[in-house]
């Protein structure tokens, strides 16, 4: 039977095309809108292409400051998250202590409730601590969403480092700290990189809490989106969406090389 006419294959191909359309469709729609001067129903084609919306975004002081805020807070949040969570991840991954499971499940379950309730409670606390509308307040709020990534993923990575690889290094004359630095940390690195990417995206993307705590003094890109959608032409929102997606794409692209590359795979080949 002709392969192309095989009904099962036809159905599969149709499903794939539908999925591609479903996933890429909105992105293409956004991308086109970001460069069109005007494109409204029932026009079949945009009336013209322009970079006007891009310049409007970059020249608008509110939008520019939101971008600046996002690019400053997210890395700081990730850094703080690493400082707080990585030692905890190591402890949980490597040391058997009482309440270890409860700790891990606790972190997990804190993320399984709608966060808006949590944020409302935090807001009252913030008022008494004078953290409302402050940079520090926003950092702390965004930190919350990264904790689960920065503990669970590195904990698994640390737990996955075979003990005898560390013993071999000790046997070779390395001190405990050197072993940690050159073997343990190095081998957990792919997991930590994944955690960094996920945390960055979580922080960069965080809108609910940031809006509640930061507005009206501090706006980041996602919170600025709210006013943008209401107050600007649709094309500006499209430009902003693309800018919002850019760090994720860049980070994933960079991480892919390290995470998917040979090293992690090599690690799994050894028993």
């Amino acid at each position: 039977m002709n392969k192309l006419l095989n009904p099962a294959r036809l159905a599969l191909n149709a499903a794939v095309i539908l999925m591609i359309f479903f996933i890429l469709g909105p992105i293409v729609w956004l991308a086109v809108h970001a460069f069109t001067s005007n494109w409204q129903y029932p026009d079949l084609y945009p009336s013209g292409f322009t970079l006007h919306w891009w310049s409007q975004v970059f020249l608008d002081s509110a939008l520019a400051s939101a971008m600046k805020n996002s690019l400053i807070t997210s890395p700081i949040v990730v850094l703080c998250s690493m400082i707080v969570c990585l030692p905890a991840a190591y402890a949980v991954g490597r040391i058997k202590f009482w309440g270890r499971r409860a700790f891990m499940i606790g972190i997990f379950s804190a993320n399984s409730f709608p966060k808006i309730g949590l944020f409302a409670a935090i807001a009252t606390l913030y008022y008494s601590l004078n953290l409302m509308g402050t940079f520090l307040g926003v950092i702390i709020i965004q930190l919350l969403g990264t904790i689960i990534y920065m503990t669970w993923i590195p904990a698994a990575a640390f737990a996955g480092v075979p003990r005898n690889l560390e013993e071999a290094a000790r046997d070779a004359g390395a001190s405990k700290f050197t072993v940690f630095r050159t073997i343990t940390l190095r081998m957990a690195l792919p997991g930590i990189l994944v955690a960094i990417v996920m945390s960055f995206l979580a922080a960069f993307d965080e809108a609910q809490g940031t809006y509640l705590v930061g507005a009206p003094t501090i706006f980041t890109m996602p919170t600025e989106m709210y006013s943008l959608v209401q107050n600007y032409p649709i094309q500006v929102a499209a430009v902003f969406s693309i800018l919002l997606a850019l760090p994720s794409v860049l980070l994933l692209g960079l991480a892919r090389k390290h995470i998917m590359g040979g090293q992690l795979a090599d690690g799994f080949q050894l028993k």
Binding site: N164, E167, R170, D266
Partner: peptide, 20 residues
């Protein structure tokens, strides 16, 4: 003495080579 201070060297059952 810790293993790092002993004049011994070990070959592990599963070799324990560092994959990276």
């Amino acid at each position: 003495l810790g293993p790092d201070k002993r004049p011994s060297a070990m070959v592990f059952q599963n070799y324990a080579l560092w994959p990276h």
